[in-house]
Design a protein around this nucleic acid. Sequence first.
DNA 1: CCAGCGTAGTTGAGCGCTCAATTATTTCCG
DNA 2: CGGAAATAATTGAGCGCTCAACTACGCTGG
Lengths: 153, 153
Amino acid sequence: MAEVRWLSDAEQRAWRAYLEATMLLFDALDRQLQVDADMPHGYYEILVRLSEADGRALRMSDLANSTRSSRSRLSHAVARLEDRGWVRRCAAEGDRRGQVATLTDVGFQVLAAAAPGHVETVRAHVIDRLAPEQVTQLEAIGQAIIDGLSGSD
Amino acid sequence: MAEVRWLSDAEQRAWRAYLEATMLLFDALDRQLQVDADMPHGYYEILVRLSEADGRALRMSDLANSTRSSRSRLSHAVARLEDRGWVRRCAAEGDRRGQVATLTDVGFQVLAAAAPGHVETVRAHVIDRLAPEQVTQLEAIGQAIIDGLSGSD
DNA sequence: CCAGCGTAGTTGAGCGCTCAATTATTTCCG
DNA sequence: CGGAAATAATTGAGCGCTCAACTACGCTGG
């Protein structure tokens, strides 16, 4: 049992600032989307990924990977999106286990209506508060964390 | 109605990297705490704040502010922590509306047992993956975001 | 001195997520 | 080929969070 490597003061400050910023930010984003577009942030992410895919359609597994969510979470979420008429599910060709989620026209329009407000919020709380070099730094930091976590799943 | 100021490529990459990193990270932290210490990250935060307070006790409102959580969330959370015997609530002196949450000895020991694993996880996925200057950058970035959000509530 | 407003905290309904179990299909390989 | 393991997706129970409504108390001004 090795000694615990506690965080130094500088590390502690950075970690807590990141944590606090992220909580405040995610709350603000969730609330903005909920109020202005009647959807949680997770739904927005799903709609974005679908809108960017070929034919605005993706296999459930691919959609789960690209949104970094579990199959279960995605199943529940897509079921609710289907109830709202924003997404449609149909059997995948060539693999009878598979399902393909497709963004409907209504779903696309809902996304198009939600996007400007969301982007404005991201700008107001993040991008416009950072110097250009901090934006670059943030990408590098994020990427470093992703690199450590993508594999070890 | 002004034009929407969409994100540039660099801004988009930074935002998505941050978002993806944070989702992966929060999932990993939550899972680690859930598996090793049988508590969600939110409970850990509450225990930490209480452990650092004078007398290991805080008014509910102060605890809500310091964990950046709503009064409602805190009420629910502390109720569950009380069921587990990790926290105790008693009336505040001098204000009969007030409640003071106190960390119990059991709660303190639970926290002490959980902390090393949690810190190791934070190190493994964040701190040890960043260069020292990136740690400094992360603090500045986090602080900039906090500054924009603390007031506008 | 009490009416009205603000503050402290709780509660319950409803939603989204996690975990574990389940169904259905495909792939691997002896 | 045929049975076992892997893959795709769903389901239901249970938990934590949000929102809105509510209780209870404190403060301040006419």
